[in-house]
Design a protein around this nucleic acid. Structure first.
Lengths: 159, 159
DNA sequence: ACCCTATCTGCATCTCATGCGAACACGCAA
DNA sequence: TTGCGTGTTCGCATGAGATGCAGATAGGGT
């Protein structure tokens, strides 16, 4: 997504208002490669702006997404993740800590696919599931991992 | 997944019981390429066995999934989809009717990926999003499409 | 036929997300 | 600077999807 300043201009030009809540979220999202959840952003925003509503966070994320400044992904392992990187890329997800990282797949837009008869394709998402470096070394049952507080649904048998 | 008869044997050999409810679900899932939801299976099962509990459907689906007889996928467009095809394949999802079809991607297991440093990959999922043949021709706002009753969340701006 | 234990069922509970309406405030205009 | 109109924010209610729990039920080996 664009910089906070550019977004502010874009919002005003679209007749949308630039509120402190939105500006804060612009800053929190800019260059954020952590693929945060709405709750994570709400927590981060609350530190700088106590009283901000979770509803506002959801609203702003929805707005940015429909403006194409943000992408949202559901990896089937919990709440949606938001990604300010709207360029062509794909994702790898750790099945233990649920961390997400961007990956770049050569030739992803030129795959040889059978079974698409009649389909018009808009977008292709490639998601790798595995174990991240940290979780590979740490037998993370003690909560020592930064994200170990994120619950892992149906551990060992997720979609 | 294996045939109902084979599954019955496998269940008994594992000390699990073969109940009428499970047998029914074995049959409903066998060779089922529609990627049904838990609710769809519950509806189909209820026709043949009025009174069956949705809870039992969820339970059996979870069991089959952890036994590796079934895969569950969350395409971010509603409830989880279940797939008895556990072979190597991928999916295409219609953004209008939410139908899912299997696709086969040549060389999918041998992609050239940058950014996986330290990750151990278990599985890679490729999902194509687009418009199916039927939805491409039918401007399906009238409900004429079989699956048009499945609501499409955040139409036009989904993950 | 009997018993042990896995299963089924119904309800409560949980998470994530959105609908709604009153109070609020951005930002244009005077 | 002040005032106004409309877009926003906020809190609560609501909704979907899925799971936890416990009493009743029924496989299936003996």
């Amino acid at each position: 997504m664009r910089s906070p300043a550019e977004l502010s201009s874009a919002f005003r030009e679209s007749g949308l208002k630039v509120t402190p809540q939105r500006q804060l979220l612009f800053r929190l999202l800019h260059d954020n490669a952590t693929h945060p959840t709405a709750d994570a952003l709400f927590a981060a925003a609350s530190e700088q702006m106590p009283g901000i509503s979770l509803r506002t966070v959801y609203q702003t994320l929805t707005d940015l997404t429909s403006m194409g400044e943000l992408q949202s992904f559901d990896f089937g392992n919990g709440p949606a993740r938001f990604d300010p990187n709207v360029g062509s890329h794909h994702h790898v997800v750790c099945r233990s800590c649920n961390d997400v990282a961007d990956v770049y797949v050569a030739g992803a837009s030129d795959l040889d696919v059978a079974g698409l008869e009649g389909f018009t394709i808009d977008r292709s998402d490639i998601v790798f599931h595995g174990l991240c470096a940290r979780c590979s070394t740490t037998q993370d049952v003690t909560g020592s991992h930064p994200n170990s507080n994120i619950p892992s649904p149906t551990t060992g048998a997720m979609s």
